[in-house]
Design a protein around this nucleic acid. Structure first.
Length: 339
DNA sequence: GAGTCGTGGTC
DNA sequence: TGACCAAGACT
C-alpha cells in the first residue's frame, strides 16, 4: 500500500519534472540572448568565457572576450603568452587573478584540456561552478551548475528559506538542480536555468508572468517571490581618501609597477600616492572609485618631483602608457588629462 | 567559515 | 544615491 503510494507519487513527480524541463527548454530556445560563446563548441573558448563570466555581466564580458580571442586564439597561444600582455588585455575587467590562473592552467595542461568535471576542477581558477559549466556545455557531462542565478531560481522554485550564502544551503540547491537536470541536454539545461535567472527570475521584481515554469514555482504559488532568496549579512562600505600625483616631465609621467606579490592588482602600473619628495600642486579633479567594499575618494594633483624618482618609480612616455596594464584609478585619473 | 579580490549596471 | 550584485575562486 505504502509502496503503491510512493510509486504513484514518484510517477507524478517524474511527469512534473518532464513538463518543467520541456517548458524551460522551449523557452530558452526561443528567448536566449546571442553571445559569441554560445556560437562555439570549442572547449578552449567555452573555458575562457566561463572564467570571464565569473562575477561579471555578459554585456561587460563580450568586448573583452572577442579581443582576448583575437590575441590568444588557442590554448598554445595562451600558454606562450607573457603575463604582462595578458594583464593588458584583461585590464578593466577586474578580478585579475582569473587571468593569471587562466594562463597558469594553460601551461599546466600540456596542450590537452581536461574532458571531465574532475579534470577541470583540478585546474587553477576552476571551482565547482566553472568545472560543471565547461564539463556540461563543452562535453555533455550531466552535472548541474550552481551560480547566483541558479541559486535564486532554485530557492524560489523550491521555496528555500535558508541563507543562500551558506555552503550547506548552496549544496542543497545544487542537489535539487542536479535532480532536475535534463541528462540528455545538460549544457543547454544549465544555460537555460542561468538565462532564466538573468532575464526573468530577477533579484528584485521577478517577471513571473513571463516565466515558463511559474506553474512549478512554490514561491510564486505562495506569493513570496520577492522575499526570496534569503541573503543575510552585508558589509558596510569603508570610505577612504587617496591623493594621486600627476608628475610630468619631457612628455613622460612618473609611474610605478605594483609589486608582483601585491594582493591587490599585482603587476599593474599606477601613479604615485603620497610619496616623500613629491610636491603636490593644484588640484586637477576629484572622483570616486569603489573596490569591493572600499569607497575611495581620489584627488589628482599636478605635482613636481625634487631630484630622482623615488624607489620603484620611473618615467614612462605617454605614448607607452596606453599599452601597459594600468590600475583603473590611474586610468580614471588620466582620462581627463590633456594627452 | 569568513575575508578578499574589480568593475559597472541597475533600481 | 546608495545598496545590491553579477555564469566564483582562493586562502
Amino acid at each position: 500500500m505504502l509502496t503503491d503510494l510512493d510509486a504513484e507519487g514518484s510517477r507524478k513527480s517524474s511527469i512534473r519534472k518532464k513538463n518543467l524541463v520541456a517548458a524551460l527548454r522551449a523557452w530558452y530556445r526561443r528567448n536566449r540572448r546571442r553571445f559569441p560563446w554560445r556560437e562555439t563548441a570549442d572547449p578552449y573558448r567555452i573555458w575562457v568565457s566561463e572564467i570571464m563570466l565569473q562575477q561579471t555581466r555578459a554585456a561587460a564580458v563580450e568586448p573583452y572576450y572577442e579581443r582576448f580571442l583575437r590575441r590568444f586564439p588557442d590554448l598554445q597561444a595562451l600558454a606562450r603568452s607573457k603575463e604582462a600582455e595578458l594583464l593588458e588585455c584583461w585590464s578593466g575587467l577586474g578580478y585579475y587573478s582569473r587571468a593569471r590562473n587562466l594562463r597558469r592552467a594553460a601551461q599546466q595542461v600540456n596542450g590537452v584540456l581536461p574532458k571531465t568535471y574532475e579534470g577541470w576542477k583540478a585546474l587553477p581558477g576552476v571551482g565547482p561552478y566553472t568545472a560543471a559549466a565547461v564539463a556540461s556545455i563543452a562535453f555533455g557531462e550531466p552535472v548541474a551548475v550552481l551560480d547566483g542565478n541558479v541559486a535564486r531560481v532554485m530557492a524560489r522554485l523550491t521555496h528555500e528559506r535558508g541563507d543562500v550564502r551558506l555552503p550547506r544551503v548552496r549544496e542543497e540547491l545544487r542537489s535539487r538542480a542536479q535532480a532536475l537536470l535534463d541528462r540528455r541536454n545538460p549544457g543547454e539545461f544549465n544555460q537555460a536555468l542561468m538565462e532564466l535567472g538573468a532575464t526573468v527570475c530577477l533579484p528584485r521584481n521577478p517577471l513571473c508572468l513571463l516565466c515558463p515554469i511559474s506553474g512549478h514555482c512554490e514561491a510564486f504559488r505562495l506569493g513570496v517571490q520577492n522575499q526570496l532568496p534569503v541573503k543575510l549579512g552585508g558589509r558596510k562600505p569603508v570610505r577612504e581618501q587617496i591623493a594621486v600625483a600627476v608628475v610630468e616631465r619631457n612628455r613622460s609621467l612618473l609611474v610605478r609597477q605594483r609589486p608582483a606579490d601585491a594582493s591587490l592588482m599585482p603587476g599593474f602600473w599606477e601613479l604615485p600616492q603620497d610619496i616623500d619628495g613629491i610636491a603636490l600642486g593644484p588640484l586637477i579633479r576629484e572622483f570616486r572609485h569603489s573596490i569591493t567594499y572600499h569607497e575611495y575618494t581620489i584627488r589628482s594633483f599636478r605635482a613636481t618631483l625634487r631630484g630622482r624618482p623615488p624607489a620603484g618609480f620611473q618615467w614612462v612616455p605617454w605614448a607607452k602608457l596606453a599599452s601597459l596594464p594600468l590600475t583603473t584609478i590611474t586610468r580614471k585619473a588620466l582620462s581627463h588629462w590633456a594627452w
